[in-house]
């Protein structure tokens, strides 16, 4: 693994964020739950909404949210397991069910085009867009969440396929000189400005 600082010039990097907190919540009365938490999440599904505390909330459907911690701090840690069944909603163990990778850099769309049939180019797949699709023949959630000026896609998929997907990505990245980084690279980037 190469350790170096991620910059806006970096063409492509893969970071395993699976150690960071994430959670999910499902139910019919999500709006009440969202309100109770003072989150700002629109009704439109397949969009991700950054919160003031850095948590990113991806709305997967009218009745389902996925919460991703701010890589810069693990403040969601406590929340991960404390989501309670309330307002007719129940927590979903996304920490267990899904791996979480970050893919950064301008070459991401080209690299991902080797694995996924969704057009992820920046002018088509806008910041904050969510795609629930197939990547290398496995179900996956792709969330575009740029960090500062760096193009960034979160890729989340079935935990049992983490090694398979990692191998696919490393293989696909070769022609783009992709680098494998550790989570602090993303953290540093977020704190740069």
């Amino acid at each position: 693994m190469v350790h170096f600082s991620l910059t806006t010039e970096s063409g492509l990097a893969l970071i395993d964020l699976s150690v960071l907190p994430r959670a999910g919540i499902k139910g019919k009365c999500l709006s009440q739950w969202i309100e109770s938490k003072r989150y700002e999440v629109d009704e439109e599904p397949n969009r991700a909404y950054a919160q003031r505390d850095g948590v990113l909330i991806a709305r997967l459907s009218p009745g389902e949210l996925m919460l991703l911690a701010n890589p810069a701090d693990a403040s969601m840690d406590a929340m991960t397991y404390s989501l309670e069944a309330t307002y007719n909603c129940y927590p979903v163990r996304r920490q267990d069910s899904h791996y979480w990778f970050a893919l950064t850099g301008v070459r991401c769309p080209a690299m991902l085009a080797k694995l996924c049939s969704v057009d992820l180019s920046p002018d088509i797949f806008a910041d904050g867009t969510v795609a629930q699709t197939s990547v290398a023949r496995t179900s996956a959630v792709i969330v575009r969440h740029d960090i500062e000026d760096v193009l960034c896609y979160y890729l989340l998929g079935d935990s049992s396929t983490i090694l398979y997907m990692w191998t696919c990505l490393v293989d696909a990245m070769k022609e783009f000189d992709g680098q494998i980084l550790t989570p602090p690279a993303l953290d540093n980037l977020a704190h740069k400005t």
Partner: peptide, 11 residues
């Protein structure tokens, strides 16, 4: 092409 053959592994 590159054949994708997903493989699932237990923890």
């Amino acid at each position: 092409g590159r054949s994708f053959e997903p493989e699932r592994l237990t923890p």
